[in-house]
């Protein structure tokens, strides 16, 4: 085979393979459940009492913290959910003042957002994390191998790991009280204990409608945004706020579901193993081409040598 014809052939093969591969790039489908539950957090109603943290600790039988839940000095520091607490309240001073000119605190509840298209579930190689029809991102400890890809994948940096437990460590995060709803027909513990109903629980579609209604009826009270409506393709926890979310520790995120890019890449490159097959075809072609060349060369060099002598 001539070098030119080989290159032509392999190029043709590559184009053919790309043309023939299943058109999965356009076929990426959101797997968001149609009629799932959600929670709407109205930050203008939150009084920072930390009752939600307490209810969460009791519901999930988590270890008691060093400082009592009634000790509000813990709000002096910014905290993150970890293996021992699924939700925390953080206090922010955004510069908002009351009529007397004093700073008004804003409290923000942080927990797993239960994304509609969760990046953690997409990254999980064993399917231990999955989005349920109920709306929760469910963690199955029996499938988990402890690779912690979910912790890297989560845009909100939520999943935590029981590093202190060397034998049976688990990934720890908010469960959305899935079991509580199923067995007791009760909303999440944080939602029922909240004294001011800063957390409203219901169907996601109904809550979005409710949130838009609040934005419309009290335009001066809120900024006109529902955080979680579109962020990373939508989340099950939605937020309303009086001040821009960027001032309250919310990170700006793209509206595209994060698994869209990674899954498209993976499914287009690896469907029917076409890309490895093509790679190895090319490599073996190259190998045979070079081998042939090598086999031909000694004759030529021998001829030359003979000529010289």
């Amino acid at each position: 085979m001539r070098r030119r014809s080989f290159l032509k052939m392999s190029l043709g093969g590559a184009i053919g393979a790309v043309a023939l591969r299943p058109n999965s790039a356009a076929a990426w489908q959101s797997r968001a459940p149609a009629d799932s539950y959600a929670a709407l957090v109205d930050l203008t109603r939150c009084i920072g009492c930390r009752k939600c943290e307490q209810a969460c600790q009791q519901e999930h039988d988590l270890p008691l913290p060093m400082k009592s839940f009634e000790d509000l000095t813990v709000l002096d520091n910014q905290r993150r959910p970890d293996a021992a607490r699924f939700t925390v309240i953080n206090r922010y001073h955004s510069g908002r003042v009351n009529p007397e000119g004093q700073l008004v605190a804003d409290y923000v509840k942080v927990q797993c957002m239960h994304c509609q298209d969760p990046a953690c579930a997409s990254a999980c190689i064993t399917g231990a994390l999955s989005k349920t029809a109920h709306g929760a991102v469910h963690y199955d400890v029996n499938k988990c191998i402890g690779c912690r890809y979910c912790m890297v994948a989560c845009p909100f940096e939520i999943p935590a790991y029981e590093y202190h437990d060397p034998l049976t460590p688990r990934v720890m995060k908010c469960t959305f009280c899935e079991q509580r709803l199923r067995e007791k027909q009760l909303p999440p513990a944080c939602a029922t204990i909240c004294p001011t109903e800063a957390i409203t629980f219901g169907k996601r579609s109904a809550l979005l409608k409710l949130a838009r209604r609040r934005l419309k009826e009290h335009p001066g009270r809120y900024i006109q945004q529902i955080y979680g409506e579109n962020e990373v393709g939508g989340t099950s926890w939605l937020y309303l706020s009086a001040v821009p979310f960027s001032k309250l520790g919310f990170i700006p995120l793209p509206n595209k579901p994060l698994p869209k890019l990674t899954e498209t890449l993976q499914h287009s490159l690896f469907s029917y193993l076409w890309s490895p097959a093509l790679l190895f075809t090319l490599l073996s072609g190259l190998f045979f081409f070079n081998r042939r060349k090598q086999l031909q060369q000694p004759e030529n060099s021998a001829g030359h040598a003979g000529g010289d002598v």
Partner: peptide, 19 residues
């Protein structure tokens, strides 16, 4: 009741008092 689907915009009794 809180989160009553018949009147979703209305806070429950506990929240109404507290608010």
């Amino acid at each position: 009741q809180a989160f009553d689907e018949r009147v979703p915009e209305r806070p429950g009794l506990k929240a109404a008092y507290h608010q």
